[in-house]
């Protein structure tokens, strides 16, 4: 996927996260999440070549980034859900890396290490201030765009 399409995907994730912040109720949130995954799948299908193995999990990577950004807006158990969202991202990336490794293609281990590092760092955070929230979002975007 091109750099521009990747950036648009990142922007979409931020928009989706902002949208989830405003929704309440199990059914509504799930419906919105369903629509988000659907949009992610459609975006990936139109913006990239889905025959390329890396893009198989692209919609779920987008979902993981959305969830990570969404957790910064939580009022309770923020650290726990932040770490869980990043673990989900890490798991999706790890599967991608392993499958690429098995097929003998180039594997983005650095991205994996970066996400693991940020998730581990989040475990040490006590009270997460607005500035740290912003910093984290910037870090996730940097990982998404540059690694």
């Amino acid at each position: 996927m091109s750099m521009f399409a990747n950036a648009v995907a990142c922007l979409l994730c931020l928009i989706f996260a902002a949208f989830i912040w405003k929704i309440k109720g199990l059914y509504r949130i799930t419906l919105v999440m369903f629509l988000i995954v659907l949009s992610n799948c459609l975006y990936t299908a139109f913006a990239g070549n889905i025959a390329f193995p890396v893009l198989e999990v692209y919609p779920f990577r987008m979902l993981a980034l959305t969830l990570c950004v969404f957790t910064t807006g939580l009022r309770e158990n923020r650290r726990r859900f932040m770490v869980l969202a990043q673990t989900f991202w890490l798991w999706v990336e790890l599967l991608g890396c392993l499958s690429l490794y098995q097929t003998g293609e180039e594997t983005p281990w650095l991205r994996l290490a970066a996400i693991a590092g940020i998730a581990f760092g989040c475990m040490f955070m006590a009270r997460i201030s607005k500035e740290i929230e912003f910093g984290l979002i910037v870090l996730w975007m940097a990982v998404w765009m540059f690694f």
Binding site: P53, V57, W91, L95, L98, S99, L100, Q102, T103
Partner: peptide, 26 residues
């Protein structure tokens, strides 16, 4: 999570190569 993912990855590698890829374990 790891064992199921690993089972799926190995299945794709040794049994049916169509399923090779990052999405199948998920």
């Amino acid at each position: 999570f790891w064992v199921v993912s690993e089972f799926a990855l190995d299945f794709a590698q040794f049994e049916n190569s169509l399923w090779q890829g990052a999405f199948f374990p998920l």
